[in-house]
Design a binder for these strands. Structure first.
Length: 265
DNA sequence: ACGCTTCCCTGGAGGC
DNA sequence: TGCCTCCAGGGAAGCG
């Protein structure tokens, strides 16, 4: 479920594998992924060019081809990227493929069609038009700035963290992780947090996202005290408090938390 | 302003 | 073995 850390890992993966290689062709296998171009247009635009650089904002990835073709890649729930040479036995989910002269290819994979690729003018325009908030790991987002954006909001902490128009990059999984580590109940209203709790929430948000990027968002490498790899109701609290993980719908999403560590206030 | 529901989309799980 | 329903959660959109 690609959130900020996952998309950052995809970005680094593309940077390490696919930049500066001449594109021989682009194949759009499922046109539902192509949001604003048809099957052959991307091939016409990119043939003979190279992917020059990437950028990320929240859950959105931007790729520049040549000197003027910007793409926005969004992954929905099931999107991923793969750099491959061999054919795959089951390539059903390979929706858009960028072939390079070196016989390798970069594939946009997606099981469900909840993501997409879009040609855009540029990242800044896209972010503005979309109304996306500041990226959660942007150094310019410090405690003061976070307070301006979040403090005093009456909405629940979980939905506030997940609101892309406020801060971009946090989804269901990482909002649960941040709230678990900060010991805040997902239904706590932002304006119920005192200064210390808010500061803890802010620092925890940064720490969790950074750590997740460090371990390449790999659940099996997450610390034993994290709740993410143990998102099942009834499992013991990973902090070892003796209580059990609870599941509850919060603003339309499944929230997992420890009712003892994250007391509702 | 905020939360809730519905919709999109595909596959896995569990009930019968 | 199969049919049915629910659920996963990225979003958009509409309603109260």
């Amino acid at each position: 479920m690609p959130e900020l850390p996952d998309v950052e890992v995809y970005k680094q993966y593309i940077d390490a594998t696919s930049l500066h290689q001449k594109i021989s062709s682009v194949s759009v296998r499922d046109s539902r992924i192509a949001r604003n171009f048809n099957g052959s247009q991307m091939d016409e635009w990119l043939k003979g060019k190279t992917l020059e650089k990437t950028a990320r904002h929240g859950k959105h990835l931007f790729i520049l081809a040549g000197d003027d073709v910007w793409m926005m890649w969004h992954f929905g729930m099931t999107g991923a990227v793969r750099y491959l040479k061999k054919e795959r036995k089951n390539a059903d989910y390979e929706r858009v493929t960028f072939y390079f002269d070196n016989k390798y290819r970069l594939s946009y994979d997606a099981r469900r069609m909840l993501g997409g690729i879009q040609r855009i003018e540029g990242p800044e325009d896209f972010i503005r038009e979309k109304g996306l908030g500041i990226d959660a790991l942007d150094p310019a987002l410090d405690l003061d700035r976070a307070r301006e954006l979040l403090a005093g909001k009456r909405a629940m902490a979980k939905s506030t963290l997940m609101k892309q128009e406020t801060i971009a990059g946090i989804g269901n999984i990482y909002s649960d992780e941040i709230l678990f580590q900060a010991r805040i109940h997902p239904e706590t209203s932002m304006d119920h947090l005192d200064a210390k709790e808010f500061s803890t929430l802010f620092k925890t948000m940064k720490a969790v996202l950074k750590k997740a990027v460090d371990i390449r968002a790999e659940p099996s490498d997450m610390p034993a005290t994290w709740i993410t790899p143990r998102r099942q109701p009834g499992k013991p609290c990973p902090r070892g408090c003796g209580s059990r993980i609870q599941k509850k719908k919060v603003s339309g999403r499944s929230a997992y938390f420890c009712p003892a560590c994250q007391e509702k206030k």
